[in-house]
Computed example of a mutant assay.
Amino acid sequence: MRVLLLLFCLSLWYTQAIGQKKGNNFAWDAGQKVLFLGNSITYAGQYVAMTESLLLSSHPKGQPQFINSGLPSETVSGLSEPNHADGKFPRPCLFDRLASVLDKIKPEVVFVCYGMNDGIYLPFDSARFEAYKDGIIRLHKRLVDQGVKRIIWMTPPVHDDPQLRLNGYNKVLDRYAEWLIGYARKQSWEIIDLHFPMRRYLEAKIEKDAQFKLAADGVHPGELGHWLMAKEIVQHLIPDFPLESTWDDNLHNKPKLLQLYALVLKRQTIMKDAWLTFAGHKRPGLSKGIPMEDASKAYAAIQTEIKTLGF
């Protein structure tokens, strides 16, 4: 009997552990702060708003506070091209603002998506690769030391070179993504692969239409690219959530979800600029956010609108 009880306990523990890795334990509390760290793709915010909208629509009672703190041009490697932004400023490094972001926001869950800028859009170089790896490992330690309860890593999105397509800079990102997936699994980190599903999607589309693109400039995906990212996140968190192939298809015949998404995107945009200004950063050229007191009032007002939709 003792042996059977031990086997049962081990089986239960294993099931719970696997469930956590797959995201089946999605049960964030109302008001819990969920932070997204990343570069300009995260700053654009569509995939973050799509994710939040779908999670709110499926779990209306649990309403965590999603905070987008993506910063354009940013890296975790601390590297920059000699003539970045026509020489106006070097790429900002996350670690220059991280302490302030964590101290002022105090997130309990953090999503992390870097890599696109860390290879500096140049051919693969081992020194740059090591700088990226060191930055990821350093960031994980910092988040753990801060007491973050759940850290979710994401591989960098696909890069679609205007001329070379997937045979250009994306080859560098392939290696970065492969390393992150392997290292995360070895360390038992929670990870969502965005890169290779996006790559497979792009490859399939190019086979049918050589002119098809996910990102006009190769870097910044449009709505479809953001949806492919959000789709992987939602499927990770709630594996049985029914999802369509495009964002428009998800919104089709769902007027409340469309309204919810518009409100969530509006709220995230207001709060994103407010938090970036409040926490501080070294990247010039961004919109100045409104004071946090005013932003909190705007958040509450939009939250009231969301509740009237039934979410």
Rank of each mutant, 00 (worst) to 15 (best):
L6H: 11
L6D: 12
L7H: 09
W13F: 13
Y14I: 13
K22S: 01
G23R: 06
D29E: 15
G31Y: 08
K33W: 00
V34M: 08
V34D: 02
T42K: 06
A44R: 13
G45E: 10
Y47T: 07
E52S: 02
L55M: 12
S57I: 02
K61R: 12
Q63E: 15
P64M: 15
G70W: 11
L71F: 03
S73R: 06
E74R: 05
G78T: 08
S80Y: 04
H84T: 07
F89T: 04
P92K: 01
F95T: 11
V101P: 04
D103M: 02
V112N: 10
I120C: 15
P123M: 07
R128A: 06
R128N: 15
F129H: 12
G135M: 08
G135Q: 05
R138D: 07
H140F: 00
V148P: 12
I151E: 12
I152D: 09
P156S: 07
P157R: 01
N170L: 03
A177I: 12
R185A: 10
K186C: 10
W189Y: 11
I191K: 06
L194N: 12
R199D: 02
I206W: 01
E207G: 02
K208A: 15
A210D: 08
L214D: 09
L214K: 03
A216N: 06
D217L: 00
G218F: 06
G225S: 06
E232A: 09
E232Q: 15
E232M: 10
L237E: 09
I238K: 08
P242H: 00
E244N: 13
S245D: 14
D249G: 10
N250Y: 01
L251M: 11
L251T: 07
K254Y: 07
L258G: 00
L258A: 13
Y261W: 08
Q268W: 00
Q268I: 02
P284N: 07
I290R: 13
M292S: 09
S296A: 14
K297S: 05
Y299L: 15
K307R: 15
G310W: 03
